Simulated scan of single mutants.
Amino acid sequence: MSIRVDDSFLDSAGATDELAADARAGLTSTAKSLPPRWFYDARGSELFEQITDLPEYYPTRTETQILQAHAGDIAAAAPVETVIELGSGSSTKTQLLLDAWQRTGTLRRVITLDVSASALAEAAVALSARYPTVEVQPVRADFTRHLDGLAKSGRTAVVFLGSTIGNLDPAERAAFFGAVRSALDPGDVLLLGTDLVKPAEILVPAYDDAAGITAAFNLNVLQVLNRELGGDLPIEAFDHRAVWNPADERIEMRLRAGREIRARLDRIGLDVHFDAGEELLTEISSKFRRDGITAELAMAGLNLTHWWTDPAGYFALSLSQ
């Protein structure tokens, strides 16, 4: 079975243009950075799936436990016809929700949205086989920009699992929540996964595992730059770092240059220079407290109505209208 991925929002050419723009802006800044969405080529998506199974990486298994315990409660609180999953990846956890929503008898349509065409295609085949009476529509798009173009029908749940919301800084989160609010009709809901603040000795290993899978995932973004933009960045010259920033309550993933580096992204004519020890910020992963996320949602006109967490208080799922 094959299912066509809708790439009308973000096709391969458009994605390359956006990568070029992000590379030019981020690699010429005083504090170098790249958006984390460029992790997720086929290899990056595969590595992330491996990360979710690591013993140090608690978010996936903890969120799964919450879904196993409360998917029925979520479906009962918000029986919907359409589910829009943002940053869907493999959609494995989402199946717990879809099972519960299908039992309500209302589910008609699932829209999966991701930047990785390969992950979308693979997940769509699995979902179509599991839910033959449900329309599955994979859409290659950027959830920060393309929500208003999605054609939803009936009561809708926007599902954003995995604490990907933590990859956005406060201004980006405010813009995202505003876009979600604009896309929702009365009665629609947002189901949001948030990783909660906890001790650094638990947090840091989740982003710097002993097997080195997260390091490979982080370094893979340099391979993406080299492949897509004709670069010669020496990947072996960079080291992976995961740092807890207590002031902003977030993990920061960085790549540190082990020596002075001069490279070129030939397809965009960009010369890149790193001093020895200079770092490239590749991801932030903010951690949340209930009162803080409630306030952020409220600022966008979203009312948090339900909150589910695990016994240790590591992770939370919230439902907002």
Results as ranks from 00 to 15, higher is better:
Ser2Ile: 08
Asp11Phe: 05
Gly14Thr: 03
Gly14Ala: 02
Thr16Ala: 14
Asp17Lys: 05
Ala20Lys: 04
Asp22Lys: 04
Asp22Ser: 14
Ala23Cys: 12
Ser29Lys: 10
Thr30Phe: 10
Thr30His: 01
Pro35Glu: 11
Pro35Asn: 13
Pro35Tyr: 13
Pro36Asn: 03
Arg37Ser: 05
Trp38Arg: 03
Tyr40His: 05
Tyr40Glu: 05
Glu46Asn: 04
Phe48Ile: 01
Glu49Gly: 15
Ile51Leu: 08
Ile51Val: 11
Glu56Asp: 06
Thr60Val: 01
Glu63Met: 15
Gln65Glu: 09
His70Phe: 14
Ala75Ile: 05
Ala78Lys: 05
Pro79Tyr: 03
Thr82Gln: 04
Ile84Ser: 07
Ile84His: 08
Thr92Gln: 10
Thr94Lys: 00
Leu98Arg: 01
Thr104Gln: 14
Gly105Asp: 04
Thr106Ala: 14
Arg108His: 05
Thr112Lys: 13
Asp114Trp: 08
Val115Phe: 01
Ala117Leu: 04
Ala121Asn: 05
Ala126Cys: 04
Ser128Leu: 04
Arg130Glu: 07
Tyr131Ser: 02
Thr133Gly: 03
Glu135Leu: 06
Glu135Ile: 06
Gln137Arg: 13
Leu147Phe: 13
Leu150Pro: 09
Lys152Phe: 09
Arg155Gly: 07
Phe160Lys: 15
Gly162Lys: 12
Gly166Lys: 03
Asp169Ile: 04
Arg173Ser: 07
Arg173Phe: 07
Phe176Cys: 06
Phe176Gln: 03
Phe177Cys: 09
Gly178Lys: 09
Ala183His: 08
Leu184Asn: 11
Pro186Ile: 15
Pro186Glu: 10
Leu190Met: 09
Leu192Ala: 03
Val197Phe: 05
Lys198Arg: 05
Pro199Cys: 09
Leu203Thr: 02
Leu203Tyr: 03
Asp208Val: 08
Ala215Pro: 07
Leu222Ser: 02
Val224Cys: 00
Arg227Cys: 08
Leu229Phe: 01
Gly231Ser: 01
Leu233Ala: 00
Glu236Phe: 02
Arg241Val: 11
Ala242His: 05
Ala242Arg: 05
Ile251Val: 11
Met253Cys: 06
Arg256Thr: 13
Arg262Ile: 10
Ala263Cys: 13
Arg267Ile: 06
Ile268Tyr: 12
Asp271Cys: 06
Glu279Ile: 01
Glu279Asn: 02
Thr282His: 10
Ser285Gln: 04
Ser286Thr: 14
Ser286Glu: 12
Lys287Tyr: 10
Asp291Pro: 09
Thr294Phe: 03
Ala295Arg: 14
Ala300Pro: 07
Leu304Asn: 13
Trp307Gln: 09
Trp308Val: 09
Asp310Cys: 06
Gly313Pro: 11
Tyr314Ala: 14
Leu317Glu: 06
Ser318Met: 09
Leu319Val: 06
